[in-house]
């Protein structure tokens, strides 16, 4: 049945070449942990992506309950955490995953760094990776405020004061982030929500696409 559906589609739009381009390629021996166990270090990039997928999915489901409003944000998080079946698990995945993704990302970066895999011709992909790192930090920073509890509020206060230290544009940057020049409040929460849920994920998808296309174009760097 599935084969028939596949054939029906393939007949009309010829998807096999697309599918081959994306998925059907050999994993070089030096990258395969089945051949050399130490090759597990090559898994860190993929694991980072795996955790990112978890973050995206759990985040999508969290927005079914979460409201970015200072009266209700904390209450909605409390509700989904205590009343909704498995809400605690989904929020737990998003909460812990946010830390795991940074850990994985750092391990992946260390592997690329110590193997010198960033060298010519892969410099561009290193730069894209660094941008991805910044996007991740931004996601972590903006997501931290969303539960609107004391820790979130004061962490953001500190974060905004750090942004304020940027030379020349610091004040504007802070206002642009917080939505107000002296209040961390209703407008800050909606802004951070928008950045966390729309702007940064958009940038993340675009950069991930470039990151992966470059890997396919250039291949994985050779053995040490």
């Amino acid at each position: 049945m599935l084969q028939k559906i596949y054939d029906w589609i393939d007949d009309r739009v010829d998807i096999t070449p697309i599918w081959r381009d994306i998925a059907d390629h050999e994993v070089p021996e030096h990258v395969n942990p089945a051949h050399h166990f130490s090759a597990f270090v090559y898994c860190f990039g993929g694991l980072t992506f795996f955790v990112v997928v978890i973050q995206i999915l759990s985040g999508m489901f969290l927005t079914m309950y979460y409201v970015p409003d200072i009266e209700n944000a904390w209450k909605s998080v409390y509700y989904l955490q205590t009343q909704v079946a498995h809400g605690q698990i989904v929020r737990g995945m998003h909460h812990w995953g946010a830390s795991v993704v940074i850990v994985m990302l750092l391990l992946h970066t260390l592997r690329v760094f110590f193997q010198g895999a960033y060298k010519k011709p892969r410099e561009l992909n290193w730069m894209v990776g660094v941008l991805l790192f910044f996007v991740m930090l931004g996601l972590g920073f903006t997501g931290y405020l969303l539960p609107w509890d004391n820790k979130a509020y004061f962490a953001t206060q500190v974060g905004l004061e750090i942004a304020e230290q940027v030379p020349f544009i610091g004040d504007y940057l802070k206002t642009l982030l917080a939505g107000s020049d002296h209040i961390v409040g209703a407008q800050t929460l909606t802004r951070f929500f928008a950045i966390h849920v729309f702007f940064l994920p958009g940038a993340l998808f675009a950069l991930l696409a470039v990151h992966f296309i470059l890997i396919r174009r250039q291949g994985i760097s050779g053995p040490l």
């Binding site: 504007y172 206002t175 642009l176 917080a178 939505g179 107000s180 020049d181 002296h182 407008q187």
Partner: peptide, 12 residues
């Protein structure tokens, strides 16, 4: 729309 807060006169 995004930069409006920057251009608002301070309410303080």
């Amino acid at each position: 729309m995004a930069v409006d807060p920057v251009l608002q006169p301070s309410t303080a």
